[in-house]
């Protein structure tokens, strides 16, 4: 067994795991953070996407032992029921998700994009979400929501202080 200690959504978390335990299992089973989902289990669907040291990764393809000492952000770190991240507000306004299973990963990928590029073009948004599959095929409203945020921000920047 290995000891893992990581900063998860701003708080220090510890777990004792066997080597083959994925980060996704540890998030869900040891730390009760069930927002990240197991979809394909091979890094194709992106439902398990989390940020590790600010970069989006598939937590089903990362061993828990690999995040020892690193910083992890999951969907639970973005906002809760009473407090929404502005990305979540936009996704809510457009009701961007149907079954919702892809939502946590999709939102984390969108956050990773906006952290790096505050004003992405639509092709850039599509490229950034290429690793997140939605089987209900509701991509349009996901892209619309991100576009809307960027437009709102552009307006805010142009407006006189």
């Amino acid at each position: 067994m290995h000891q893992v200690e990581a900063t998860v959504n701003g708080a220090t978390r510890r777990a004792e795991v066997s080597p083959e335990t994925t980060l996704l299992s540890t998030l869900r089973d040891s730390w009760g953070l069930t927002g990240s989902k197991l979809g394909c289990d091979v890094g194709d669907c992106g439902a398990c996407t989390v940020l590790v040291d600010g970069l989006s990764v598939n937590s089903c393809l990362l061993l828990a032992v690999q995040v020892n000492g690193r910083e992890v952000v999951t969907i639970e770190g973005l906002g809760g029921f009473e407090y929404l991240h502005r990305l979540q507000t936009a996704f809510e306004r457009l009701s961007s998700f149907q079954c919702g299973f892809c939502a946590p990963g999709m939102i984390i990928s969108a956050k990773a994009l906006l952290d790096e590029n505050p004003a992405p073009t639509e092709p850039e948004i599509r490229e950034a979400l290429a690793g997140n599959l939605c089987r209900c095929t509701g991509y349009t409203k996901v892209i619309d929501a991100i576009t809307e945020i960027c437009r709102d921000r552009a307006v805010a920047v142009e407006a006189p202080a």
Partner: peptide, 18 residues
């Protein structure tokens, strides 16, 4: 606005594996 959207976007919707 879908009634279930807020739990979806906060990752709090309880699917069976949750």
């Amino acid at each position: 606005t879908r009634p279930d959207i807020r739990t979806h976007i906060t990752g709090t919707t309880r699917y069976i594996d949750d």
